[in-house]
């Protein structure tokens, strides 16, 4: 049976990179095993992102107000869940996640019993591995998440991930708003889902801005820590 995969591309002011990302994904060959559909979620960009995206071979979800990365990706999850896709994956619209790495994640999730597969920069440490301060933050989250959920996630801020339908059911209902990547890991663990990582190579972003702004790393760390703590408490009774 052909497995249907929704590739969710959240885009906020990505007019320069979006066409490249979508075309590159469409150019990949997955044989008869997988059928890929690209879902571009335009998070109320004020450049020509929507205009460009609607001419590409993809489904465009156009948000009327800016929701931030979490809300945008969740819109894609909702679409994927409603339309009965088998897997959903997130690929950022800024060209940071090279489409050629997609098959790695796809292969891993279809061949193992993992519910979530995260593409990690820090297993082999090759390619673009971000700035020093960002790496420091990621190391901090690694220990924080190990403390709260007893698994080691080397790249918790990576948005390059694939989930199965079981996870889709959960995330289309509840998904953290901003900085969703590290926080969602604890949500997954609390729901007894199996998370695995595969090594990938990432690039530097081609355009757009990180959802983590340069001058707010402390705020980011604090907010994520609080969110992790309360997600832990909130979902305590599920285990």
């Amino acid at each position: 049976m052909v497995k249907r995969i929704a590739v969710i591309v959240p885009a906020y002011n990505e007019e320069k990179a979006i066409a490249g990302v979508v075309n590159e994904i469409n150019a990949l060959d997955f044989g008869n095993e997988f059928k890929i559909t690209i879902i571009v979620v335009n998070d109320c960009s004020h450049d020509r992102t929507a205009e460009i995206a609607c001419r590409l071979k993809c489904i465009l979800l156009d948000l009327p107000v800016n929701l931030g990365i979490g809300g945008a990706v969740q819109t894609g999850f909702k679409y994927a869940y409603e339309n009965k896709y088998d897997f959903a994956m997130q690929v950022d619209g800024d060209g940071q996640h090279p489409p050629t790495e997609i098959p790695k994640l796809l292969k891993h999730i279809s061949e193992t019993n993992a519910d979530i597969v995260i593409g990690s920069r820090f297993i082999n440490n090759i390619g673009f591995i971000s700035t020093f301060s960002r790496r420091l933050g990621i190391a901090f989250f690694k220990y924080l998440l190990r403390l709260f959920c007893g698994v080691t996630i080397t790249d918790s801020t990576s948005g390059f991930r694939i989930i199965n339908r079981k996870v889709l059911a959960i995330v289309s209902e509840i998904y953290p708003d901003d900085y969703p990547e590290p926080v969602s890991i604890i949500l997954f663990r609390r729901n007894n889902l199996k998370i695995e990582e595969v090594p990938v190579i990432m690039c530097e972003r081609k355009g757009g801005k990180s959802s983590i702004k340069a001058f707010t790393p402390l705020y980011y760390m604090l907010k994520v820590s609080i969110a992790v703590f309360f997600t832990y408490i909130r979902n305590r009774n599920k285990n």
Binding site: V41, L63, P64, T75
Partner: peptide
């Protein structure tokens, strides 16, 4: 509520 509404609008538009 605002988030849910916006997401619903995006899905309906599609």
């Amino acid at each position: 509520k605002n988030k849910k509404l916006s997401q619903e609008i995006a899905l309906l538009k599609n």
